[in-house]
Design a protein around this nucleic acid. Structure first.
Lengths: 209, 209
DNA sequence: AAAAAAAGTTGAACAGGTTCATGTTTATAG
DNA sequence: CTATAAACATGAACCTGTTCAACTTTTTTT
């Protein structure tokens, strides 16, 4: 059985994360003081810094919780992707986008993305990068599935194509969270306008066979 | 003639920016204290906040100086783009990348990008977004030139394609500044692997004519 | 040229994220 | 069961970006 110390540690970490998540949602990231989080989690300020290196780290930890869920949802699409290449890619992308605001506000996304770029070496930055890598891999995997199915030119390098598409997904999302009055609908239209023509280009042209 | 007050203001702003740029380069962004910058610029701390809203704003101002230069250099490539589509795009992109480290370190780029994402509404965030827009427009303009020249399928929408390519450029650059031991050479290879196949796809296939 | 107004500068005070010397709790050794 | 050591929690002090009420300089008015 896990020692007492170990159990207490786990419980404290969970309490901190929960308290932080609540405070962030309630008052916003900036307004949520470490002191408040400490009080809500019933630990001292110093203890929080025993579990997380910076305030930004705590935010990334809350982002990571959600991201796992998104990746799981994406996996289900990979099992039965829609018929056409464009539709298949967009199904996966829309899934990502639509779930992004389930737990996190645009402001929190902005801060999380900014933090991960600013601190690529700290554990939370690396964790965020790992999540990005998983998403990029899922996109690449989908392309591979489509290619195997005969929908995409077999000569194309899936790795590069996956990266290209993931860049577009990411960049469009960053644009989305930067502009407060841009809607999910606008975001869909933006990415579709980039993905659709690309999909048409790479589609194995069955007419010429 | 410009009034005394106006001239003094301009001189102060210049001194602040110069002092900040020097301090950032000398000790890094974080280590450069506002107090130090104020002393070097021979103004008070409060005065700095009369010209820039936050420390991040000062950084963006230094980035903006360089970016203008990059855009000007890019314009020269647009006048005589290399023959093949892939080569033309990569010539422009390499130009961007190679000049990026002329004045700014990777750390400063990280902080500038992070700041612009975190504060899209503050003047410096908007300014950075405007620079991005100019770069994206330049990429789109190049594509338009190539299309007029008959190198690219005339049915393709240049706007969406330009955005797609700019996303790839940007995302690859972010990856570059996040990893300290990634070289410009690595960055070239990364973007080329995404641009080359795309260029092949969109090239008007003269063989079929 | 003096007075009033406008614009700008100043630096001490503030705020909140972060650190660290001290104290406390849990685990291990005798 | 004590004693020692290791791990951990604590919160007051620290650091630095930011603010703002008081002051100074420039411009405009009379």
């Amino acid at each position: 059985m896990a020692g007492l110390r170990e159990r207490q540690k786990a419980a404290r970490e969970r309490r901190i994360l929960e308290a932080a998540s609540t405070q962030f949602r309630k008052s916003g990231y900036r307004a949520a003081k470490i002191e408040d989080i400490a009080e809500a989690a019933e630990v001292s300020v110093g203890t929080i810094y025993n579990y997380y290196q910076t305030k930004g780290d705590i935010l990334i930890a809350t982002v990571a919780m959600e991201d796992q869920e998104v990746i799981a949802a994406g996996a289900r699409i990979l099992e039965h992707p829609p018929e056409r290449v464009g539709a298949a890619l967009l199904a996966l992308i829309y899934q990502y986008y639509d779930s992004s605001l389930k737990y996190l506000s645009k402001e929190m996304w902005r801060l999380a993305i900014a933090h991960s770029i600013e601190n690529p070496l700290c554990p939370s930055g690396q964790r965020y990068a790992e999540l990005d890598r998983q998403l990029a891999k899922q996109v690449t995997d989908l392309i591979r599935v489509l290619q195997h199915r005969g929908d995409i030119d077999p000569d194309l390098d899936v790795g590069s194509l996956g990266q290209l598409i993931f860049s577009a997904i990411n960049q469009a999302f960053i644009g989305f969270v930067k502009v407060d009055d841009m809607t999910l609908h606008d975001l869909h239209a933006l990415i579709a306008s980039q993905i659709e023509p690309l999909a048409t280009q790479i589609e194995a042209d069955v007419g010429t066979q």
